[in-house]
């Protein structure tokens, strides 16, 4: 009863027999306290996982070649961060077991999505393939469940990273990043082909059936589809700029990322 307030105004109400319902409420207090503690631990871990994942993505953006192991200096940076993320997941894993795995979904979701973005980016750089849900889940320790929602939304954000990666490569190497050929006589795929493939798959997702109420996934997918389209458009426009002005390109020239966007919109407004 240490935390009880004594502002009840009746004389006989300042002791523990203040109310016959007290034992039940003491149970509630313990339960709510535990709930809040778990919740806060998860929020904190999720925030840290997000920050670390962002740093990993930053490091990975310095990679210049597809389908090759991550260069050791970069891998060294990312590996320490992966290790910290693993530890964070392991720390909160007990809070996310069984029935609680979905209870705190909203709290852990941010960290999971950013982590998927980081690992799927790395996976793409190394293998030029899209990370599967099962592969992503395998990288999260302690039995913390990766929901389909977080996996999908992480992949959406991946397209933004691929856009940045593609454009940086055009700017520095003057070419689109391209994978190694799969066999004799064939060319490796370039990043634009991959981005278009992702776009096609995402756009073919049907989110129209059923009620929309409280379906965060549907709402987020609709929002992120728009951003994803813009990302693909930016790389398309950068590729166009590379072809048309490539030879005149001064060393260190960086395409204006907004240029393509404005160009695409202008006619709509002026006609």
């Amino acid at each position: 009863m240490a935390g009880q307030k004594h502002d009840l105004d009746e004389k006989d109400m300042d002791t523990s027999d203040v109310s016959p319902f007290m034992p039940m409420f003491q149970g509630f207090r313990d339960e709510l306290d535990q709930h809040q503690e778990r919740r806060e631990r998860i929020i904190k871990a999720s925030r840290d996982i997000t920050a670390l994942s962002k740093k990993i993505i930053f490091s990975l953006q310095r990679v210049r070649h597809l389908q090759q192991p991550i260069p050791p200096p970069i891998a060294k940076e990312t590996n320490t961060r992966y290790k910290s993320i693993q530890e964070l997941f392991t720390t909160i894993a007990p809070d996310l077991q069984g029935i609680n795995s979905w209870r705190y979904q909203k709290q852990i979701s941010g960290g999971c999505q950013e982590f998927v973005e980081a690992i799927s980016f790395q996976h793409y750089l190394e293998t030029q393939r899209l990370l599967t849900h099962a592969e992503a889940q395998a990288l999260i320790p302690g039995g913390v469940e990766l929901t389909t929602d977080d996996y999908v939304l992480g992949l959406f954000d991946l397209t933004g990273e691929l856009m940045r990666f593609g454009i940086t490569n055009i700017a520095t190497n003057g070419t689109l990043p391209r994978g190694t050929p799969a066999g004799e006589g064939s060319e490796g795929r370039d990043i634009l082909m991959d981005l278009r493939a992702i776009r096609t798959h995402f756009e073919s997702l049907d989110t129209s059936s059923g009620p929309n109420d409280f379906s965060y996934l549907k709402k987020d997918i609709q929002k992120k589809t728009e951003v994803m389209r813009e990302s693909v458009g930016k790389v398309e426009y950068a590729a166009y700029g590379m072809i048309i002005r490539g030879r005149e390109r001064p060393k260190g020239w960086v395409p204006d990322l907004n240029e393509g966007q404005d160009r695409g919109r202008e006619p709509v407004e002026s006609y």
């Binding site: 935390g3 009880q4 307030k5 009840l8 203040v18």
Partner: peptide, 14 residues
């Protein structure tokens, strides 16, 4: 209601 109120007062709310 006072008895219920007393119960609610020991809860730590967020």
């Amino acid at each position: 209601v006072k008895e219920l109120h007393a119960g609610f007062q020991i809860l730590n709310m967020k």
